[in-house]
Amino acid sequence: MGKISNFLKQVVSEMRKVSWPKRKELTRYTIVVLVTVIFMAVYFGITDLGISKLMDWYVSF
């Protein structure tokens, strides 16, 4: 039990050293991540649709 409590004390100590982002930085980072995810989803969706249409055309040929 002593090892667990020692570990948790060390975790708390290290978490106090962390430099947390300010609200403005967090908002900016969140927007960047969301825009990137949306862009990648659209890109892969269009790519998948194109490959599907190409395969449909090839199979029907």
Score class of each variant (00 low, 15 high):
10 Q>S: 14
18 V>K: 10
30 T>D: 02
57 W>N: 10
46 I>E: 12
35 V>D: 07
50 G>A: 02
42 V>Y: 00
45 G>Q: 13
37 V>K: 07
22 K>C: 11
53 K>W: 12
15 M>Y: 09
45 G>R: 05
11 V>D: 08
50 G>D: 09
49 L>W: 10
14 E>N: 14
21 P>A: 03
30 T>H: 01
28 R>L: 04
49 L>S: 12
51 I>M: 11
22 K>W: 03
36 T>A: 06
33 V>C: 11
25 E>H: 11
32 V>T: 13
39 F>R: 01
10 Q>E: 15
42 V>I: 10
28 R>C: 00
21 P>L: 00
20 W>S: 11
21 P>E: 10
43 Y>G: 01
12 V>G: 07
52 S>P: 03
39 F>P: 08
57 W>D: 01
55 M>H: 00
7 F>K: 06
42 V>R: 08
56 D>C: 11
53 K>S: 09
52 S>R: 07
39 F>M: 10
38 I>P: 06
8 L>V: 09
57 W>V: 14
20 W>M: 11
46 I>G: 03
26 L>Q: 13
13 S>T: 11
20 W>T: 06
45 G>E: 03
41 A>K: 02
56 D>V: 01
39 F>S: 04
53 K>I: 15
14 E>M: 15
36 T>C: 07
35 V>T: 08
16 R>H: 14
10 Q>H: 15
58 Y>M: 02
30 T>V: 02
21 P>F: 10
43 Y>P: 00
21 P>M: 09
55 M>S: 01
28 R>K: 14
26 L>K: 12
29 Y>R: 13
34 L>A: 12
38 I>H: 10
24 K>L: 04
10 Q>K: 12
56 D>L: 06
37 V>I: 06
30 T>F: 04
21 P>V: 08
28 R>H: 08
34 L>T: 01
40 M>H: 05
51 I>G: 01
9 K>V: 00
32 V>A: 14
10 Q>C: 14
13 S>D: 06
57 W>A: 13
34 L>N: 05
48 D>W: 14
19 S>E: 14
31 I>E: 12
35 V>Y: 07
49 L>P: 05
50 G>S: 00
39 F>V: 04
47 T>D: 12
25 E>Y: 08
26 L>V: 02
15 M>T: 09
23 R>T: 11
20 W>R: 13
44 F>I: 15
22 K>I: 13
47 T>I: 06
40 M>Q: 13
53 K>H: 11
20 W>F: 12
55 M>K: 00
16 R>D: 15
40 M>S: 00
39 F>W: 11
12 V>I: 07
52 S>V: 00
11 V>E: 13
21 P>D: 10
43 Y>M: 05
34 L>M: 07
7 F>P: 08
41 A>H: 01
27 T>C: 04
8 L>E: 15
26 L>M: 06
37 V>S: 02
22 K>S: 15
48 D>H: 14
11 V>Q: 04
13 S>Q: 00
44 F>C: 11
51 I>D: 02
18 V>Y: 06
11 V>S: 14
58 Y>W: 03
17 K>E: 03
49 L>C: 05
35 V>H: 06
18 V>L: 14
41 A>E: 11
46 I>H: 09
9 K>P: 05
26 L>P: 01
42 V>L: 07
55 M>G: 00
18 V>I: 15
50 G>L: 10
53 K>Q: 14
26 L>F: 02
58 Y>T: 01
19 S>R: 09
9 K>D: 09
32 V>Q: 05
49 L>H: 01
23 R>Y: 09
52 S>G: 07
11 V>M: 11
23 R>Q: 10
45 G>L: 09
